[in-house]
């Protein structure tokens, strides 16, 4: 038995690591390939874009697609910086508000007792499944009735209550041990203090994941610009990129490739900033 015990925790993993790499590396390459492709695609000149069979790597990188994109943008009455500014405001507001709202609601649903709790969670699950297309017109009517049509609020308010976000965050909070909260309560911490000092730090990975989901849903959203706004000056970058690349011309293809890359650069930046908190899952954040 004692001999078996020494085997349990080998200090060196040299040989054991090899099979893991054998699996991981091919799959990683397989999954990473499209990302490399998108970047290469944006820099392809016209003849390479339409080459058949399509080439994976660009052989004569050029900025012509980006130039076309910005030229078309310069031709329109509203400068592209305006769209960027709009997108920035809307995105920051939605991500912050939706995180605050979902963590608060998640805390209540996961750790507190009150009447109608389960009903509320069921409502969330129903909203989770519902087809967004079917609620766009009722949403339009609501926004019109509230009188926020054609304002920033029309971009922000419909998106801040994200059912998926709440669902994920609530499930993570379920795993925070109750004893931790009881201990905090014994020390005299109130509900808000527990929320701020215990719950939020412990569910950081879930919050970061939720933030990324919220970011995505708002950053590439074209629907709010399309339906809830009518003046061009209030629309977002995602919408603008969509209209530019939607032009069915030969140039449009290249511009679409460039636009796709421009749209995903902020995603990448956000991920690099957040990655430590996303990846450091529960074990490192003081939970058993």
């Amino acid at each position: 038995m004692a001999i078996g015990g020494t085997k349990v925790n080998p200090k060196k993993f040299h040989k054991n690591q090899i099979p893991f790499y054998l699996y991981l590396i091919p799959v990683a390459v397989f999954m990473g390939a499209p990302i490399v492709y998108i970047i290469n695609h944006a820099f392809k000149p016209m003849d390479e874009l339409f080459a058949f069979p399509p080439k994976f790597f660009v052989s004569n990188p050029s900025l012509i697609n980006f130039r076309n994109l910005f030229q078309t943008a310069a031709g329109s009455s509203i400068p592209i910086s305006r769209y960027i500014f709009n997108s920035f405001i809307v995105t920051v507001a939605v991500v912050l508000l939706s995180i605050i709202i979902s963590t608060m609601a998640g805390f209540a649903l996961s750790k507190m007792k009150f009447k109608l709790k389960n009903t509320i969670f069921e409502v969330n699950n129903l909203a989770l499944m519902f087809v967004a297309t079917a609620v766009t017109i009722p949403r339009y009517l609501t926004i019109n009735a509230v009188g926020i049509l054609d304002t920033y609020w029309a971009h922000i308010l419909p998106l801040i209550a994200m059912p998926v976000c709440l669902f994920l965050i609530k499930q993570f909070m379920d795993q925070v041990p109750d004893s931790l909260l009881e201990a905090a309560q014994l020390e005299g911490a109130g509900a808000f203090r527990i929320y701020w000092k215990v719950i939020l730090p412990l569910t950081k990975p879930a919050i970061a994941t939720g933030a990324i989901l919220a970011f995505q849903s708002v950053w590439t959203n074209v629907e709010t610009s399309n339906l809830f706004t009518s003046s061009e000056g209030i629309r977002t970058l995602g919408f603008y990129m969509n209209t530019l690349s939607g032009v069915g011309t030969v140039q449009g293809q290249g511009m679409a490739a460039a636009a796709a890359m421009i749209m995903f650069v902020p995603n990448l930046l956000l991920f690099v900033v957040m990655q430590s908190s996303v990846m450091n899952t529960m074990a490192y954040s003081g939970m058993k």
């Binding site: 605050i100 209540a108 507190m112 409502v123 909203a127 609501t142 308010l157 509900a191």
Partner: peptide
């Protein structure tokens, strides 16, 4: 519980439940 759930509840009632 209600205080914590309220903001979310308002958002969901207006933009999901009512719309649905």
């Amino acid at each position: 519980g209600y205080i914590f759930i309220l903001p979310w509840l308002i958002g969901v009632s207006i933009f999901f439940v009512y719309a649905m």
